[in-house]
């Protein structure tokens, strides 16, 4: 029955275009969050289980900044930079204390922050849903491609995310700083012996990773309902994305995020009860066929 709907949509250009655009925005948000998670893990070797909460506070920072200033640009910037700075402080004050310790210790520290941040949001904003609303700038007629409608904000969001992803990838692959970061991921002692302050480097990388989550939260604010706990589902999906794409690989995260985004958007039409199952199924399949992920390096 629903599968028929899916087949029908796939055979109609306009429906397919709409669903693809929905899949792309889900995928791009996931990509931003997952690439931050993956970057932090790749360089520091820790998993930031509080990453979903960083996404959440990015959204709330943007919400507040928008309420105060009425400027969407400032809203995005405060989500991105606010969470970036918050992440750096979190790394210095808490995360750095559990490096090299049991992963359970890291989980514990992060879980504490998930609870604290959720409660902070409840105290400051209340437990009920919040809506930021679509900024005036985007009150434009939707783009029309092959009969399908794409809201102008979607186009903006996909573009911004793509630019952020590209800058991140170029920064890591081509700049001296990116080369140092990749070297520090493999042999921090040697990087230190060459005169590089790895402590500062770790804090900075953690900050950039957090900033990606915050940016995603801010970009999501106009199109999602804001609630305490909104970070949980995106955290789980980000894990799925990093597992599929390969921990530490930005390009892998990009491909996997789009795959999951499209699975969600078409799946909710064709097999709404099995969307989550499908995502986990893809992950399981990748784990069986290539345990290190599509673009991850085998762990030795």
């Amino acid at each position: 029955m629903e599968l028929e709907a899916l087949a029908g949509c796939l055979s109609s250009m306009s429906c397919a275009v709409t669903q693809v655009s929905t899949g792309l925005i889900i995928g791009m948000l996931l990509f931003l969050v997952a690439s931050g998670l993956s970057l932090i893990f790749g360089v520091l070797g820790v998993i930031n289980f509080a990453h979903g909460s960083f996404y959440m506070i990015g959204a709330y920072f943007a919400f507040s900044a928008y309420q105060l200033t009425d400027s969407f640009t400032l809203a995005i910037l405060s989500g991105a930079l606010g969470v970036g700075i918050f992440g750096m402080a979190f790394e210095r004050l808490f995360m750095s204390k559990v490096y090299g310790r049991d992963v359970l210790m890291q989980l514990l520290v992060c879980y504490a922050f998930i609870l604290i941040l959720d409660d902070m949001v409840k105290i400051l904003y209340g437990a009920e849903y919040k809506l930021m609303g679509m900024p005036q700038t985007f009150a434009l007629p939707p783009f029309q491609i092959a009969g399908g409608f794409i809201p102008s904000y979607y186009v903006f969001m996909i573009g911004i995310s793509a630019v952020v992803g590209l800058v991140l990838w170029l920064g890591i692959a081509k700049t001296r700083f990116g080369k140092v970061v990749r070297a520090a991921a493999i042999n921090p002692t040697m990087v230190g012996a060459l005169g590089i302050n790895t402590t500062l480097l770790y804090a900075f990388v953690f900050g950039v990773g957090s900033m990606l989550a915050g940016t995603a939260g801010a970009l999501a604010a106009p199109i999602r309902t804001l609630t305490p706990g909104m970070g949980l589902s995106i955290l789980i999906e980000s894990f799925i994305v990093t597992v599929i794409g390969g921990m530490g690989s930005i390009v892998g995260a990009f491909i996997a995020a789009l795959l999951i985004g499209l699975t969600r958007s078409f799946g909710s039409m064709g097999f709404p009860l099995f969307v989550d199952g499908m995502m986990f199924g893809i992950m399981a399949l990748v784990l069986i066929l290539k345990p290190s992920g599509l673009l991850g390096r085998p762990v030795h």
Binding site: K179, N187, G192, G195, N197, T198
Partner: peptide, 27 residues
């Protein structure tokens, strides 16, 4: 700290040739 000692002018080349294996020579 080691990075400050390096900046002070000590160039340490460890015994087991710790090149960064996945970087090019130039990198």
């Amino acid at each position: 700290k080691p990075y400050r000692i390096a900046r002070a002018g000590i160039g340490y080349v460890p015994e087991d040739r710790q090149v960064f294996p996945e970087h090019s020579i130039e990198d």
